[in-house]
Nucleic acid binder design. Structure first.
Length: 448
RNA sequence: GUGGGUGUAGCUCAGCUGGUAGAGCAUCGCGUUGUGGUCGCGAGGGUCGCGGGUUCAAGCCCCGUCACUCACCCCA
């Protein structure tokens, strides 16, 4: 958690921190739009029915109610706060299918709410930045590739340090389990997903106990989960394990993950590994699955994850398969801010603080400020003619880089508060170096 | 939801076997009377989370409650 909070799980930032967050959001928007994703926002509230649609009874959903509950309220649809961007988006797509052109690609950066117990990096209210591509009836696998590439580039653009996208394909895992006769694939995926946390011995144990695997099946499933390659050689290892008669599904999964890895290595080299232990808890994923570790912040868990879902949205006979990834903006931001890796140079947008020689000078001082503002230079005028020392201190405490003085003859001087140097200037032409125009983002990250 | 830990000044914390609250930093003022940052001196600031109990006396002990925090579960 970045700072103490009067309510746990609800992060509130100081202005300087908010500048850092805005920079993150601006960067994401830039990268998403560069790749042709349209902006989209959906309402905060969904019907409980919509949210519970795909199983997931236990999502710690916040229900909405009015304090003055009326007797007839039983007839109204029960409403709840969104807990992710994907489910509301799926609802939106089916409702607006007639107005959208498919495949439809959008980005969506919004708050979501989950009632889980807060912890470091886990919030009850947090922002997710999603990109998805949704097709009408069918969606080329290339979209999986594109989604992962765009997110890798977005994370690169944030320049927050080194990260690794861990990718897998559920068809591969499930196909493998079928090939070796392990039938309870959902349970097996769930167990295997915990490999990193509980270790190979306990994974094997739980595979036998909860997924009904034989000792031999458990061993094979464990070996599969331990495959991790930065290139396409994982496929050979899988084939060795799978033996002579691989299930069709396994072959499909191998083909898809091979295509994905080979494209990723070409377009965002060094950013992805094929990690066959990745499964994801959400049961609507059907193919590609992705998690992301930020190096140096492994304990945070995944900062960006998602995958392919074949039928999250449907309207009558129409099915809308999709693929999407989501960045945990709040989680990422709170970690970087509290570690001091990300900060902003000042807490105000102000570039110039215009001082007052006397209280009567307020009007002319605003005129000076307006001349600067018209040229895109943020300016603030002192409220009263305190001693110059105090006026300078006012600016200094807020990180305002320049203080403006006008003498009794109307001559102007601007002082760079950091260096202390002061020079005669003209309000109609003076401008600061471009880096001073907005608060600077300060990074203390190594690498990139 | 389950189990631990912690609540004292704006922040970080001290406060002995119960005796009526302290430090550093920050803030404000003065030195320096209209050009800040350093330094010196001084000042303000606390229902000790809240409620109850034990006691002559509770920040300290007991009970309850709320909040924060960590782990599990789950996830961004």
């Amino acid at each position: 958690m970045a700072r103490k909070a009067s309510l746990s799980g609800y992060l509130e930032l100081l202005p300087a921190e908010r500048f850092a967050e805005l920079h993150v959001l601006d960067t994401l928007r830039e990268v998403f739009e560069a790749h042709g994703f349209s902006p989209l926002e959906t309402r905060a509230v969904e019907t409980v029915e919509t949210l519970l649609q795909k199983g997931e009874i236990d999502q710690e959903i916040y229900a909405i109610s009015r304090l003055q509950e009326e007797e007839r309220s039983g007839r109204e649809a029960k409403l709840a706060l969104r807990f992710d961007n994907t489910v509301p988006f799926a609802r939106y797509v089916t409702e607006n299918a007639g107005h959208l052109a498919f495949p439809f690609r959008r980005y969506q950066i919004q708050k979501v709410w989950r009632g889980e117990r807060p912890q470091a990096g886990r919030f009850r209210e947090f922002s997710q930045a999603d990109i998805d591509i949704v097709g009408d009836g069918a969606l080329p696998f290339r979209c999986d590739v594109e989604i992962v590439v765009v997110m890798a580039r977005a994370l690169e653009a944030l320049r927050i340090g080194d990260f690794t996208l861990r990718v897998n394909n559920r068809k591969l895992s499930e196909g493998f389990y079928r090939t070796i006769g392990l039938t309870n694939t959902p349970a097996a995926l769930r167990v295997v997903d915990k490999l990193e946390k509980i270790g190979p011995l306990r994974v094997a144990e739980e595979l036998r106990e909860t997924a009904g695997a034989s000792a031999e099946q458990a061993e094979l499933a464990l070996q599969l989960a331990q495959i991790r390659t930065s290139d396409c050689t994982f496929a050979d290892k899988v084939r060795q394990l799978a033996g002579d008669r691989p299930a069709d599904l396994l072959q499909q999964g191998l083909d898809e993950l091979t295509e994905l890895m080979s494209e990723l290595n070409a377009r965002v080299p060094g950013r992805a590994v094929a990690d066959l232990s990745i499964a994801r808890g959400l049961d609507y994923y059907t193919g590609t699955v992705v998690e992301t570790v930020l190096h140096g912040h492994e304990d945070l868990g995944s900062i960006c994850s998602g995958g392919r879902y074949e039928s999250l949205a449907s309207a009558g006979k129409r099915v809308f398969p999709g693929v999407g990834l989501s960045i945990g903006v709040t989680r990422l931001l709170s970690a970087l801010i509290s570690s001091g890796e990300l900060a902003s140079s000042r807490s105000v947008p102000t570039v110039v603080y215009v001082t007052l020689r006397s209280d009567d000078d307020w009007g002319p001082a605003q005129d000076v400020a307006d001349q600067l503002r018209r040229r895109g230079i943020s300016a603030e005028v002192a409220l009263s003619a305190e001693k110059f020392g105090k006026q300078i201190k006012y600016a200094d405490r807020r990180g305002i880089p320049y203080v403006w003085f006008t003498d009794e003859l109307g001559r102007h001087e601007v002082k760079d508060i950091r260096s202390g140097s002061q020079e005669s200037v003209d309000p109609s032409s003076w401008a600061p170096p471009t880096e001073d125009l907005t608060p600077q983002i300060i990074r203390k990250t190594e690498g990139l």
